[in-house]
């Protein structure tokens, strides 16, 4: 899979205009996007995920021009091709971890496959929490659960928003390790946006906003 970003401009209002630098990634190539607050990191990530529409410019993922997709096709494309790890772990609170993951399969129109869920949780060492409610998980566990959901449907692109912002150094390394591992496993491009300079050493390919 190839990711290309070209001439991307996003406007919240007249004063807040983001001009994003161009990006060109080869298949499986990871990217670290660094930037301080207010530089549009999350906006950039949401644009890549198709959650926001740019003012102008092009985002190409594989052979798909993301910007030209209609709403319905966009939702579908996102479900099957993009895994997102949000800054805070978001889950459906009424459901257990397993049901949250089943929901991710269901909403992406992927066949619901408990075996795949178990295998994914196993890789993240979370299998023993499969029937827990999300509120019963620790913050670190929620983070791993969020990673599990992002990689569950073997997406082509994994997007992570500040995955290490509230973690100490030791766990920071392990989370980055997990993300890289899972991206390799899924053969996906991994794009992390962060202001966390600890991640610099882990990624060759960096982009400064």
């Amino acid at each position: 899979m190839m990711v290309v970003v070209k001439d991307l401009i996003f406007t919240y209002n007249k004063k807040t205009v983001f001009n994003f630098p161009d990006v060109q990634l080869m298949a499986k190539e990871p990217l670290l996007v660094l930037g301080e607050s207010g530089t549009g990191k999350t906006t950039f990530l949401h644009l890549l995920a198709g959650l926001l529409r740019p003012q102008s410019g092009d985002i190409i993922i594989g052979t798909t021009h993301l910007t030209s997709l209609g709403n319905r096709k966009m939702d579908k494309f996102r479900g099957t091709n993009i895994g997102i790890i949000f800054q805070k772990p978001h889950f459906i609170s009424a459901l257990t971890l397993k049901d949250n993951l089943l929901l991710a399969q269901y909403l992406a129109n992927v066949k619901q496959n408990p075996e795949n869920i178990k295998a994914t949780l196993q890789r993240l060492n979370m299998l023993h929490k499969i029937n827990s409610r999300i509120s019963e998980l620790s913050q670190g566990e929620q983070q791993r659960a969020a990673i599990a959901r992002a990689v569950l449907n073997t997406p082509k692109l994994i997007l992570a928003d500040e995955p290490t912002s509230s973690i100490d150094d030791r766990n920071c390394a392990s989370v980055v390790g997990l993300l890289k591992e899972q991206a390799d496993f899924a053969e996906a491009n991994l794009i992390i946006v962060t202001h966390d300079h600890r991640l610099k050493e882990a990624f060759m390919n960096q982009l400064l906003l």
Binding site: A49, L51, N71, R72, D75, K76, R78, G79, T80, I84, F86, H90, F91, I92, S93, L103, A104, L107, A108, N109, R149
Partner: peptide, 14 residues
């Protein structure tokens, strides 16, 4: 945000 989350997981508006 749960609704938004489900959209981000690929759920259509409908």
């Amino acid at each position: 945000y749960e609704m938004a989350l489900m959209r981000s997981l690929g759920a259509s508006r409908n």
